[in-house]
Each structure stands twice: as structure tokens, then as C-alpha cells.
């Protein structure tokens, strides 16, 4: 009695496995990791806020709800005690020098992001320029306490 041996095609199976592995790995790194292999680097502009509470490096930059860049660094101006935020904007997005940058929150507990509202000026911002019009973070706790405080004082 001899049992028939099934010899699987090892090369084929290993090949399939490796291809599947590499496809999934590249999906992860290109789509999710946003590996910028082919993207051109963007340009940077500066925005000053009196408060950038809750904003994190890497936070999104949106115009009309579309992502056009990200926050690169956040640092403190040691003379004016203002927050200096460096924004990285995609190279094909042009911004006027009277654009408004405001810090907003997605939902109630969502992430902070920066909303850009373009203006009507003819002069475009270039690498290293500063956005002069800014709106700082709205701190919900302050709003609530203000509301409670004011309604009390009316009584």
C-alpha cells in the first residue's frame, strides 16, 4: 500500500505569498504612511496666534474643507508671547496675502485643524511670508464659564 504523495508547487506558493505581502506592505506605506515618493515638496508660511491651544504638529490645513497641507512646527515667540505656527502648504495651492487662518475643532471633541479663508488681494504669499490675519483657538471651557458668569451677573 503506497500513499500517493502530493507535492505542492512550493515556488508558486511562496511567490504568491511574497507578492501578496509586498502589495499589502506598499499599500500601507504609500496610502496610509503618505510616503511622498512622487510628490513635490510644498512651501512654508508663518502664522501668529495669540493662542494655539489644542493644535498639534501634523494637524490638517483646510480650505473649504479640503486638505491642502499640514502644521509643521509650533513654537513660542519669546518677546510677544505669541504662538508661531509654521504651515506647510502644497506647492500648487496659491494663497493671497490677506487670507485668514483660524484654528477650528472638528466636532466637539475632535482634532484641532487650521481653516484658511482666501481673500481678494492680488499679492500671493510666497515661501517664508507671514499670514497677518489669524483667529485663535476657541476654548470651550472659557466659553462655557463666560456664559455661566455673564448669565449670573444679569440676575
Amino acid at each position: 500500500m503506497s500513499v500517493k504523495r502530493i507535492t505542492p508547487n512550493i515556488e508558486l506558493m511562496v511567490g504568491l505569498f511574497v507578492i501578496l505581502g509586498i502589495v499589502t506592505a506598499s499599500y500601507l506605506s504609500v496610502v496610509l504612511g503618505e510616503t511622498n515618493l512622487f510628490k513635490q515638496p510644498g512651501y512654508e508660511v508663518i502664522a501668529r496666534f495669540s493662542s494655539s491651544t489644542g493644535l498639534k504638529e501634523g494637524a490638517a490645513l483646510e480650505i473649504a474643507g479640503v486638505k491642502v497641507g499640514s502644521v509643521k512646527t509650533i513654537s513660542l515667540d519669546r518677546e510677544d508671547y505669541e504662538s508661531i505656527v509654521v504651515l506647510n502648504i502644497e506647492h500648487d495651492i496659491q494663497l493671497t496675502d490677506d487670507s485668514i487662518a483660524s484654528i477650528r475643532t472638528a466636532g466637539i471633541i475632535g482634532d484641532r485643524f487650521i481653516k484658511l479663508t482666501p481673500g481678494g488681494s492680488d499679492i500671493m504669499l510666497e515661501h517664508g511670508d507671514e499670514i497677518s490675519e489669524t483667529e485663535s483657538s476657541i476654548v470651550i471651557e472659557e466659553l462655557i464659564s463666560k456664559y455661566i458668569f455673564e448669565s449670573k451677573s444679569k440676575d
Binding site: V14, L16, F17
Partner: peptide, 13 residues
């Protein structure tokens, strides 16, 4: 090595 990759990798898929 190929045999082992087959056993450890491909057969675990």
C-alpha cells in the same frame, strides 16, 4: 529557505 518560507509564511496565509 524557500521550503521554510513556504511552511512558515505561505501556509500561514
Amino acid at each position: 529557505v524557500l521550503r521554510q518560507i513556504y511552511f512558515i509564511g505561505a501556509r500561514s496565509l
